[in-house]
Design a binder for these strands. Structure first.
Ligand code: FES
Ligand code: FES
Lengths: 143, 143
DNA sequence: GATATTTTATGATAAAAATCATATTTAAGA
DNA sequence: TCTTAAATATGATTTTTATCATAAAATATC
């Protein structure tokens, strides 16, 4: 459903949401290890997220990655789009093109409503929402 | 969501469901062109489907691919699994492992019910179902 | 200002997925 | 039985995705 890159990006953001702050920055190694992603790889992903202002970073000693209050309001969908591009989640199940309700493919009716519901949730749910969910012990951050 | 290979496989099976029969076999070129898939590629996919008995084939002159009555009862999910393997649709959204409701990841609650509903439908819906849907003009076979 | 520590920019390599190519086998029909 | 039309087996190539590596730039602290 998502690319590895997208999964890793979400895990990293979530880890930052739970464990970092403006005064508690995290260095690459301290992110890569707990979320179990090769550190050179997550480094590249973090760079991209930082460039798109989804996460914050400062370099040099005492530097690292963190989220601002604003960035806790980032929607999950924005993270996915930042690394995977927009198309992936809207593509039709049978063609490589956009899904189209006016000219539905043969599988369209089997999935459209549910896919839509999922997409709506991904567009609405913020990192802060997920953070609270985790804090309440209702879900985990898998390795 | 699906690999190109899976999309192509479903399109090809559907095309056979609508246009072929034991007495009206179709040759690779007559499948590849209308569904708009490179013929060397679809050939390879058809070979795999044939080996798994999801479609039928005979070689030599007057040969080609077709579906038997039994094969019209193939479930969409079986086609996907035949070419992509079983894991893809059950993998957790955040880890690369199996989705697990006892230890739900942070995105689990956003998608589980819907993903399940979709999977159930893919497991239940047959090529014959889809064929009728197309015949009734309720959906199309995209190129 | 020199040094150490961090991100950033860039690109190389590896693995997987998609695509292309072709020689071999099978079966029909002349 | 020969020729021809088809699938089948096999493998090569290309493209995309995932992963690894490193030199350059920035900043805190001494
Ligand atoms: S048109 Fe194919 S999934 Fe909507
Ligand atoms: S545990 Fe991650 S999607 Fe179910």
């Amino acid at each position: 459903m998502f690319s590895n890159t997208a999964k890793y990006a979400i895990k990293a953001c979530l880890f930052l949401a739970v464990n970092s702050s403006e005064v508690n920055k995290l260095v690459i190694k301290d992110i890569a290890e707990p979320i179990n992603v090769p550190s050179a790889y997550i480094a590249k992903i973090l760079q991209a997220l930082s460039k798109k202002d989804i996460i914050s970073s400062t370099r040099g000693p005492k530097g690292g990655f963190y989220l601002t209050g604003d960035q806790l309001q980032t929607k999950v969908m924005q993270i996915i789009e930042a690394v995977d591009g927009e198309e992936r989640l809207n593509s039709c199940l049978l063609s490589l093109e956009k899904c189209n309700s006016d000219n539905p493919c043969s599988l369209h009716h089997l999935v459209f409503d549910e896919k839509n519901k999922i997409n709506e949730r991904l567009k609405k749910t913020t990192l802060e929402d997920l953070r609270q969910h985790i804090m309440r012990g209702e879900s985990i951050l898998p390795l």
